[in-house]
Structures are given as structure tokens and as C-alpha cells.
Amino acid sequence: MHRFANPARFLRLSTLLLPWSAGATVVLLIVGLYLSLFGSPPDYQQGDTVRIMYIHVPAAWMSLFVYTNMAAAAAAGLVWKHPLADLFAKAAAPIGAGFTLVCLVTGSLWGAPMWGTWWVWDARLTSVLILFFLYLGYMALVNAFDDPQRGTRAGNVLLLVGIVNVPIIKFSVDWWNTLHQPSSVIKMGGPSIDSSMLIPLLVMAGAFTSYFIAVVILRLRTEIAHRKIQTLRFSVAGDGATG
């Protein structure tokens, strides 16, 4: 991990990775969307509404996946003062918030015909809403300081505090009797959904993951370039002042 603390090494690696992850996103998204919209059967109870799930479930996975990654990066940033880890958390936050919003909105759209309501205050929905607020709070906190270092460090502590919410989201459907159905893919004894639905779901999950990787690399590169420009500006200003 410490190998990548050097931004130059990261930049070289990322130029290698970026086209692959971007290409994988496009291919997987096209295949996944075709499979989920046309190539899979409608559900016997939900009819065609089930197709919302191929967006909703991967988005929900990603919202947790991104947050967990950000928290791990935050820990690395605080413990080893790893410069890229700080930047990673900052770069990933808007993407994670986007996934969470997609998850909430698609869930709501699915709930309207299926549960007969746009929103219920059950444990899963409430805890995901809190996750969304945590993302927003993190982004607001990071940008609230004049010194960007201070902002990312404060944000790191907040990310680690907010990690208590992740297991609550994951197990909320098991701990409480809620309207939201329990997990049917990741559970003991294998998935309980048919492979004709499981495959499009996994393809979509792959597409979302590679999308995340591609965008986070892009954002990290932008951030590094931004820092470089700032340093150059400061040094030019410094030269002007002394010379």
C-alpha cells in the first residue's frame, strides 16, 4: 500500500487502469442493461417492476462498499498520514452519495407500486437515509476549512465515527421486522434467487463497480493536478515576493 503513497507511481498505474475500467464499465453496462431489461423473465409476483431491482440492489451494495472503502482509507490516512488515502476519501464521497441517492430513489419508485407507499420509516430505509446524510456531512465538513489538510483530517475522523452505521444497515433487515425484504443473494446456504435473475444482477454490480473505479481514478488525477497547480502558483507567488 505504501508503494502508492508516491503520486507519480499512482499516476502511472492509473493511466494503465483507467481505459480498462472505463471500457469494462461500458461493456458491462450495455450487457447488464440488456439482460435486465430484455433478457430476464418478469417476476411472477412483481411483474416487470422487478427490473428496478437490477439498478436498486447494485446501487445499495455500492453505497456501502464505497463508504467502507472511504473509512478504510480514512484509517490509513490517520494512522500512516498516507497522502493518497486522504485524497481517495475526498474523491469517492460524491460518487458514494450519488449511489446512495440512486438507491433511495429507485427504492421509492419500486415501493410505490409494490408496497403502495413511496416511503416507510422502517429500519433499512432510515439507516440508508442516515448514510446519505453522513456522505453529505462529510463533504460539507471537508470543504469547510481554509486549510484543505485540516478538512480531510476532520473528515477522516467523521468517516470512522460513521462506520457504526454500516453494520446497522447490513443487518437491519434481520434485527427488526421490517417491510424491506431480507437479503436473498448474500446469505447462508447460497442465493435464493434464480440464476436468470442473479446473472443480470451480478453483471450490473460489476458495471457499477468498474464505473466507480474509473470515476474515482479520474477524480483522484484531477485532484492531484489541482494540488500541483496550487503548489506551482504558491511558488510563483513566493518568487515574485522575494524577487
Binding site: F133, L134, F145
Partner: peptide
């Protein structure tokens, strides 16, 4: 966390209220 931040008070409530739920 919000020590020394701009608009610390508003930011504080934004951070803390979700955790109060």
C-alpha cells in the same frame, strides 16, 4: 471536528443530527 470551520454551528448540526437519530 468543526473547530475552526467556516459556519461551524450549522455544519455541527448537519453532522450531529443524523447520529442523534
Amino acid at each position: 471536528l468543526t473547530l475552526g470551520a467556516r459556519r461551524g454551528g450549522v455544519l455541527l448540526s448537519l453532522l450531529i443530527l443524523p447520529l442523534y437519530i
